[in-house]
Write a protein that binds this DNA or RNA. Sequence first.
DNA 1: CGTTGCGTTGAATAAGGTCAAATAGAGTGG
DNA 2: CCACTCTATTTGACCTTATTCAACGCAACG
Lengths: 254, 254
Amino acid sequence: MQTATITRIEPRTAILSTIPQLRKFEVTCSSCNLREMCLPMDLDAEAMRRVEQVVYARRRVRRGDSLFNAGDEFSAVYAIRSGFLKMTVINDDGREQVTGFNMPGELLGLDGIGTGRYHGNAVALEDAELCVLPFSLLEELGREVPTMQRHLHGVLSREIVRDHGVMMLLGSMRAEERLATFLLNLSKRFTRRGYSPSDFHLRMTREEIGSYLGLKLETVSRLFSRFQEDGLIEVQQKHVRIVDIAGLEAVMGD
Amino acid sequence: MQTATITRIEPRTAILSTIPQLRKFEVTCSSCNLREMCLPMDLDAEAMRRVEQVVYARRRVRRGDSLFNAGDEFSAVYAIRSGFLKMTVINDDGREQVTGFNMPGELLGLDGIGTGRYHGNAVALEDAELCVLPFSLLEELGREVPTMQRHLHGVLSREIVRDHGVMMLLGSMRAEERLATFLLNLSKRFTRRGYSPSDFHLRMTREEIGSYLGLKLETVSRLFSRFQEDGLIEVQQKHVRIVDIAGLEAVMGD
DNA sequence: CGTTGCGTTGAATAAGGTCAAATAGAGTGG
DNA sequence: CCACTCTATTTGACCTTATTCAACGCAACG
């Protein structure tokens, strides 16, 4: 496990003009193709400029490496620019639970605000690049720009809502419903990012899917096979093709 | 389902002096015995005063009634003054999942910030009284008082952390571990509120416990009986007495 | 004092887990 | 480029756990 590369970017616009064009281009949220779903969503030009001041570094994490681990000191949240990550928690007996899979445009590290230390582990499922948002700067921005404040609260609240959805999944659904829900959720998120709703590459293993869904990897594998037999999907290793969306949705309806 | 009683309290201190002594006394967070664990935790006098301006109404909800329901317009979060409540979500096929049980000093309604509508249902398990905190006032306060801002973020973040703990419970633990965890968690929270760590009254039914823990009510009942046979607890209907805390903790260790 | 909701318990069943073996890919170094 | 290794995946057989179905008991309440 090696230290991830950190690319420092100038923190304040005052200095921004001294940076080569290319670099400047990289920093701007306004030109980032994730702006529609990332933190600066729906901001006016002025607010956007302020956010860009907060994004003061870029960080790369290689597949298998951690962005942060449980217990690490919290100082920033991260916006995913590229790559897939998983969030996990590990309990006393060493059992690991995957609490989420995250894709570009999503925010990581919110679990660290409350205690000053990250509560979970963020591990890259493939090489990833992230925007580092020092949380104190984000809070400062929130105090000055109500839109940003509201937006940050929204992100936190929606994470809670998402978690409640996972509780519903884990607490009330049968195995096949869980997997169907999972696939449909991935499909929706891929669609939002401009990728195919029906054809995608799973970055996580069967075991990681199983952990997230509260199932064993063998069960996940069997379900993939069954869904394929039933003509709902086509699977080949990590590549999934959803053949019958309505059918998948109907799995929950029985 | 009847509308809960709402007691209006003057929103701003300017008017506060006109209220009878008793009422004034009721409003003050500073004299509330929950201040140690509620929103105004760790605030200085000035910040405390500001919070008290935000708490502008009191609301009563009777056992079985809803404080709010999924889809209701979001405008406030609620601090529980007295009484137990449960949070639930209901999915398309009508299945209900209990996502949490809440006791005095805890905040409800955070799930509504992100979308402007509450995502879950808050139902009183016994007659309850709550402080109404209009969220726009809370945000305003957050912008002006960094301590409060940080504190609100902390509450939101810790809710996420709690949810991840529940995911761990639902995704990775066996039935008996879940129930043991649940009982120990209740014990801890009761202790914090000055009640007995070992002797308490469950406000929720076996079915509600089961829903929360991802188990059927019969399973919960059997586990209670088994824990009793094993000398870990004594149960009589809703009254629980933890006899062997270490033993309960050990349930998770096997 | 019957009704009703909640809780307990037993027996049968099903869902998913465990164990084991075979296979398929991906990555590595010669 | 190929052989080798390692890890991920698939599948079968069997087992365990929790669910389902059903009956009954208890306590609160009109």
